[in-house]
Amino acid sequence: MTHFSPLFPGTTALAGLLALGASPLAAQSVSMTVEASAIPAFVAADRGFFGALEVEVSKVGYDQVQALLVAGDTDIAWMSPIETVQFVTEGSDFRYFSTAGAQNMYNGIVVRAEEADQYPDVLSLEGKQLGIPGFGTGTWASFRAFTRAFYDIEDPTEYFDVVTASSGALLALVEQGRVDAALLFSGSSAAARALPEFRTVFSFTEAMEAATGQPLVINGAVATGTWLDENPETAAAVVAGLDEATAWIEANPSAFASGGEYEQLAQDAGWLAGPETVDSVLSLIEEGKWYLSSEDYTQEWIGAIMTLLADGQFVEELPEQDAAFLAPGTLTASE
């Protein structure tokens, strides 16, 4: 279920609060702006997992999510923890506050299956043509941090022969031998994992797990520090709803297959690109590997991300951890 946000949702929410005489700790309605991969948010809204809280879930493009939070036109945005740190470094008052319903970052590098022996890992691609979806994307920024932190590659643009193309075209370019490897967004990565023509030689979350024991996610719930301070109970209700939706999705993966109740959501997220892709994604969901829950949002997880960003020289000066991440347990304590 997708709603369009009002022009000034913050004003609407405030007016609603005043009218109801409600405590500012329990806003009655909240706007949540997400991109197509935020399926737990749609399912939670559709199945009533947010309870009495009225959550307007609006779907926009990935870049627009960030823009709307910067502009103050949404209460909660669906954003990457790494990009949240970047925005905080640049002066934004953003806080990543939960991994409930966040998607594991299976984005990665794929090569042609017949060349998998030649290119078994990231380091073997030295000097080879690597297609990426853009120098300004979060995927490239994360990869840059990874190569510095885990592979001692100071400048990936010199280590690889980097070329840019739209993410949708990259998989076709790899298949046709136009580029040796490609760093892909999540939809194309899921397709590549499933198709026999490709081999995934690197994925963010698996590399992160191997190095730190913690997963890496593409997205998750982000709000401004001010909003979180004023609405901790509302934020906790949102997290609870997302957790319930994630559990429901894991128990009902067939609802996202062709002909299923939420086929359209799966279609929009790029899961139905082909039978192999949907099988791959649904089996990861069933195994509980596709989504994280709020239980994964721990001090160790945040520490692993901050260490990655420090080792990867992600920004000149990292912000304090509390400036970018809400302390784990804060929302539970306020409930």
Binding site: D63, A67, G136, G138, T164, A165
Partner: peptide, 20 residues
Amino acid sequence: EVIGLPNGVGILVAYWSDTL
């Protein structure tokens, strides 16, 4: 240039758009 090239003004515009 935005859709697929190693250089050009389109690449720069895409870069700034991606970084908002």
